[in-house]
Design a protein around this nucleic acid. Structure first.
Length: 92
DNA sequence: CAGATGACGCCTG
DNA sequence: ACAGGCGCCATCT
């Protein structure tokens, strides 16, 4: 991992405002790494402990099973309610 | 080098 | 809503 890429992703995640959410793909794109959603997940798993990683969800608004509980719990504190384990997406 | 895995995402049937 | 396949990158075995 290049430290630059690492920092870039970390910064993007840090820039996610409280009470809002983003997706791995979104973060990757914002970090200048379009299509590298996988990488974002890895980075958060390794060096995202001190980041608002709970504001990052999957592209469909769901969270990863292993962190789903933490995700939901942390988001809840910020006022984000998860319905059935996912963001209240409308058919829009 | 080859095979398998993972906090992912998009497409097709 | 569910299942299968492909692309993506880094890491471990």
């Amino acid at each position: 991992m290049d430290e630059e890429t690492l920092e870039r992703v970390r910064e993007v995640v840090r820039a996610i405002p409280p009470g809002t959410t983003s997706s791995y793909g979104e973060v990757a794109a914002r970090a200048g790494l379009p299509g590298r959603a996988r990488l974002v997940g890895r980075i958060l798993a390794e060096d995202g402990h001190d980041l608002p990683w709970h504001r990052v969800l999957r592209a469909d608004g769901t969270c990863a099973p292993q962190i789903a509980r933490e995700q939901a719990a942390r988001l809840r504190v910020e006022g984000v309610l998860l319905v059935d384990g996912r963001l209240p997406r409308r058919k829009g």
